[in-house]
């Protein structure tokens, strides 16, 4: 009996404390993020230091765009920060995004990395690379198509192909080659798998280091994070692999973006736009490049030296908006060939 009476008292106290912090104060911006904020907390801190605007955030890998849509006109969200072009497209589909009216952003970000109608902008760019074993693979130029080459039978590792990064790659393949060839490609890659798709991109490096497989798909920045992080085991994984910037046959490298939208009902719209302007500024772009090992989207900001050692990135010129539109079909194809099973 005592337990729950006390519980009630504590709970009402707790609720009161929480309510007290939820009002709209001047000088705030509310961020919903699909990206772990710890990954760019330095940028957010710098923003607060420079502008005096406090950043409030919640993080979840999925479901936040739906939450903004459900919250409607009373949503506290000002900005949704997300990775993957598909997620940005989804925010548009849910109707939660409003045009980002900012000359600063328009001049900082190349047009192909922004929504034609200005409802999202990229903040950083990453390449879908192929990690290969330093010991066992000598190739320095690979194509995405070659992952289906029978010579790699039993040698390929990847995370789930339903993960947005691989769905986007598959969607890009559809844009390039059409559905039929993409399906054959998926079947070919599946036939080469050393193990069931699982884990994340870092696990591909881990598995290559452990000798489970010889090559696999992984995003470019993980190599930098693993090699230069404080986790000793991950340093060993990074040391065992060499990232290759692959190309499509007759094309270039598949890139994806992290990006942001300003919400339709943003209570702190001006601050939201200030935040996005800050994140596309040379300073913040340099942090993305040096701390997160991503490719800056702003011309003139140099790629981090470690990332530059992978070779010069030549992004495929296809429109990211087209990739986003093909992702539903891509995900269905992945299911049809039973890739993850």
């Amino acid at each position: 009996m005592r337990t729950y009476r006390e519980g009630l008292r504590l709970a009402s106290l707790g609720a009161a404390l929480l309510v007290g912090t939820s009002g709209v104060l001047a000088g705030e911006v509310n961020v919903y993020t699909n990206r772990e904020p710890g990954l760019y907390s330095a940028t957010l801190d710098e923003f607060t230091k420079a502008t005096g605007i406090k950043v409030n955030a919640i993080f979840s890998e999925q479901g936040l765009a739906e939450r903004i849509a459900a919250e409607g006109e009373k949503s506290p969200a000002d900005v949704l920060i997300t990775v993957d072009i598909g997620r940005l497209q989804q925010a548009l589909d849910l109707g939660v995004a409003a045009p980002i009216r900012s000359e600063v952003v328009a001049s900082a970000v190349p047009a192909n990395l922004r929504d034609p109608e200005g409802r999202w902008t990229a903040l950083s760019m990453r390449a879908r690379t192929i990690y290969v074993s330093k010991e066992r693979v000598q190739d320095t130029a690979l194509t995405y198509e070659s992952l289906a080459d029978p010579k790699w039978k039993g040698k390929v590792c990847t995370r789930s192909f339903q993960h947005p990064y691989n769905v986007a790659l598959t969607a890009a393949m559809i844009v390039k080659k059409g559905e039929e060839k993409t399906k054959a490609w998926l079947e070919g890659v599946k036939a080469n798998l050393a193990k069931k798709p699982s884990g994340g991109d870092r696990d591909v490096a881990k598995d290559i280091a452990a000798g489970v497989c010889d090559l696999g798909l992984g995003n470019s920045y993980y190599v930098g994070l693993m090699a230069n992080g404080k986790n000793e085991e991950q340093k060993k994984w990074a040391a065992a692999i060499r990232p290759v910037l692959p190309t499509f046959e007759g094309g270039a490298t598949h890139v994806n973006v992290s990006g942001a939208v300003v919400t339709k009902h943003a209570p702190n719209r001006d601050n939201a736009i200030k935040l996005i302007e800050y994140m596309t500024s040379p300073d913040a772009q340099q942090v993305f490049a040096d701390v997160n090992y991503e490719y800056p989207i702003r011309a003139g900001v140099p790629v981090n030296a470690f990332v530059a050692s992978f070779g010069a990135l030549k992004p495929d010129p296809m429109s990211l908006a087209d990739v986003a539109k093909a992702r539903k079909r891509a995900s269905e194809l992945v299911d049809e060939v039973g890739f993850d099973r």
Binding site: E6, G7, L8, L10, G14
Partner: peptide, 10 residues
């Protein structure tokens, strides 16, 4: 965590 859990438990 404890606040929330206690409230829900009650």
């Amino acid at each position: 965590t404890v606040f929330l859990a206690l409230a829900a438990t009650a």
